[in-house]
């Protein structure tokens, strides 16, 4: 069985130069290489400080890779784009069509209701507002978000409620590449199970998933492969 590779990372390095702290350099990722194929769920393993979130953010174009390349196959095309070198316009387009990202926290947009926040990625792909909202409603119902909250802006929601809005937004457009940063962290067991099922379904439809999961049970339930990461220590740098 040879599923096509959707995401390919080679020799990725990332360090932060803190100019406000006298120019200190903080290395986080060094020589990371891996590939993710259709239907795979790659789980990033490692202690806190190993650079798991940083890696996801580099893949999303949110952090600028310091070295190496991140080849992404664009949805519907055979073109590969190097996220590490892409123009802002290319990254915006990749995010619209190819990559979704579920972060730990929801960035609230003033006055926009939960259901519209969820529906937005689908509308950005050209679906009409009604159809997008219908699908958003299905997802929010599946994630057990009380219906009375759907038409409210999520600013006042609890952490768990906001996270479910975030998950629904990340899953609605069924992008080929999905990046999940602790999507179950503030969820109860029942909702955690829903998210696990959704990740499995995403893999079944052919998505390439890269995720970070605090919960070992969730990790075991979704991982098809694991990538161990460890914090960079001074000796490694010297060598």
């Amino acid at each position: 069985m040879h599923e096509p590779t959707l995401l390919s990372v080679r020799h990725l390095g990332k360090h932060f130069t803190l100019h406000t702290q006298g120019g200190t350099t903080m290395p986080v990722l060094d020589e990371i290489s891996f590939e993710v194929a259709r239907g795979e769920c790659l789980v990033l393993d490692g202690p806190s400080g190993a650079g798991k979130s940083t890696l996801l953010r580099c893949l999303y174009g949110n952090y600028l890779a310091s070295s190496g390349e991140i080849q992404v196959r664009e949805a519907g095309g055979l073109m590969r784009i190097d996220v590490a070198q892409a123009t802002p316009q290319q990254i915006i387009e990749l995010r619209r069509t190819t990559i979704s990202y579920v972060s730990q926290f929801l960035r609230v947009i003033p006055r926009v209701s939960a259901i519209d926040i969820v529906a937005e990625p689908l509308q950005a792909l050209g679906r009409d507002a009604g159809a997008a909202r219908d699908k958003a409603a299905v997802l929010l119902a599946r994630l057990n978000l009380p219906e009375r909250l759907w038409h409210l802006p999520p600013a006042t929601f609890s952490g768990g409620e906001q996270q479910r809005v975030n998950v629904a937004r990340g899953f609605i457009a069924e992008k080929p590449i999905m990046l999940l940063d602790e999507p179950t962290a503030s969820l109860d067991a029942a909702n955690r199970a829903v998210v696990v099922a959704m990740i499995r379904e995403a893999c079944l439809r052919g998505a390439a998933v890269v995720g970070i999961f605090h919960d070992a049970e969730v990790r075991d339930a979704v991982a098809t492969r694991r990538l161990p990461l460890s914090p960079i220590v001074a000796e490694q740098l010297a060598a």
């Binding site: 174009g61 949110n62 952090y63 600028l64 802002p88 915006i92």
Partner: peptide, 8 residues
């Protein structure tokens, strides 16, 4: 990119 510039 706005979020890249603000976050990194």
């Amino acid at each position: 990119l706005t979020d890249q510039l603000l976050d990194d």
